[in-house]
Nucleic acid binder design. Sequence first.
DNA 1: GCGGATCAC
DNA 2: TATGGTGATCCGC
Length: 686
Amino acid sequence: MEDSESATDNQRPWQSYNTVYTNAKAGMEGVDKEKVQRVVYEMSKGSKYFENEERKEAFIRQKMEHMRDRAEKLSAADLSYYQKVADKRILELEATRELSRIWLHVDMDAFYAAVETLSNPSLKGKPMAVGSMSMLSTANYEARKFGVRAAMPGFIARKLCPDLIFVPTDFKKYTYYSGITREVFRNYDPNFMAASLDEAYLDITKVCRERGITGGEIAEELRSRVHEETGLTCSAGVAPNRLLAKVCSDINKPNGQFVLPNDRMAVMTFISSLPIRKIGGIGKVTENILKAVFGINTCEEMLQKGSFLCALFSRSSADFFLSVGLGLGGTDTPEARFRKSISSERTFSATEDAALLYQKLADIAEMLSVDMQKEGLSGRTLTLKLKTASFEVRSRAVTLQKYICSSDGILKHASNLLKAELPISLRLIGLRVSHFNEDKGGVPVDPTQKTLTKFLISGDAPKRTGGDQCSFGSDLSDLNFMNEKETSVSLDSNGTCHYEFGAPFESNHLSDIDGNNHISYENAYEMDKIGELSSHKTAATTDDTKERTTESPKKELSRVSEEDSSFQREPEDGSPDRSNKEPSASGNEDDYMLFWVDDYKCSLCGAELPSSFIEERQEHSDFHLAERLQKEESGTGSSALIPRQRVMPKEYVGSQNRRKKHKSSPAEGKHLPIDSFFAKKSGQKS
DNA sequence: GCGGATCAC
DNA sequence: TATGGTGATCCGC
């Protein structure tokens, strides 16, 4: 460590503690950032969390050093070459500029907090945050004046604002109000893209043309309609693409809007002074690196430093950075995509008690399995996520021959992954399943998308019927309208499917900012396309020649025929009384259902092992597993009932039905769970 | 295919 | 006392 740095650290140690909490954000204008920084530091100092943050910080600094070295080592010839690469790429990107569409981004103001204030008006005007002592989801504007904000631990927030009122999260409320806003959005773009419960992108090109009014007028109208329907305010941005619209919606927040005209000059002027951190996809780390290594602060400087970016980043990263500099990003209406993974994770007080950890794992497996069954998913890659007591995050994955979705199937493999990590002290366990049954490498299942309705209603959608373990025993009506995880697809009363897009303009191109990243832009280029520049190839290979292999981007994904992977064939008993279950007859992987009857007797062979005999139980379970695998090898296994396609999650249908009920008359639906807060809303005065 | 990281909400 | 959960993507291996 440099002496100069420690010197400043000694005087103002908090200055070196990098948090996201002082980043410019709506409602944070008058905040004493120095004070916030100091309080956050004081509250964090010495904690395990803090120490881990310091480790990460040090690692990032190292990466930045490495990148700086590489930048300095670029010769004049290199730079001249990469300048040409950048210029060429900028021209190509410029050619894709599209100014014919008008996009609107709506963002509800302090959404969760605003909803809570609706249902409890006494909160009005008081500093309030939604969340717990551990973590806040959001804070209202009164609280933001104190530096309190989303993703901040509650105990720190309380230090910043001793009078802060804490309100627990209630996703049912937020989902309900989100639904109302979406009804409004639909009037302007039936295919709008929901980005989350409180954000959406609307292509208002058509509605502007049809009504002969401007995007700004549409925004005004939409916002007042949202307010009329919900009593909530929102902000809007109007721009030629989604990336810019998102930036614009933040400018006059709360309860305001900003219009960027569809004019190239206007866009370039707008972008020129824009801090890069305003751009979606550029987070704390990327911002730091671009600033520290390349001196890039504004989007305009992305273009000025184009040669460096092309020299030191992958092509996709450099392309993203350059397009940011040009103010490009997201003008099409992408097809709805299906989720690629599903996961469940929980934080708990750190423990190294293997029995306890195993119990946590079993709980997670159960939760995940339930979620998967709700959506009719099964997958063959299982990833175990661990966070140690010292906040280090690890993951361990296996990819199986067969698709799993049952709690026991998941737990079986998860236990093996966890076992390999023992002994260990953990504060979080998570499980994720990916590689879904009909996963076709990210290609949308139904290219005609938009109206998945037809797909659903016409009966083309594979239906979950009895005989499939993945079918949940419950009736549609048992499903919540939406669980608290913010299910990513909703179906409206018109049957239009709205996918909640994670990346509305571009994907994250940033994770390659990594000290180990030796791939340069040039490597990713097909040299023949550069033509005359290719003579300079040698200069470009200053380091890492091993990386220069120009491998075909297309990898032949040899897939095992889906027909031969066995799948549930027994009706899921789902009943708690598992002791009646046969020790399985067929070779299905998920038949391997070992559990401890009355918590001590093996369900498969009757052997007795008390629950404290963790290791012994695991070995016992392994024994049965080996036995089973042997059977399968010998070919006894598998008649298969395989879902040919990802089934339409029942929840979609469920939300459709419920939505209709809501629509007719909110007051009459007393049977709906949503009513609990509805009643509260009108009845609760203080 | 795996593991580490970043990012958004 | 106390720093979340879900999903996506990218990259190097």
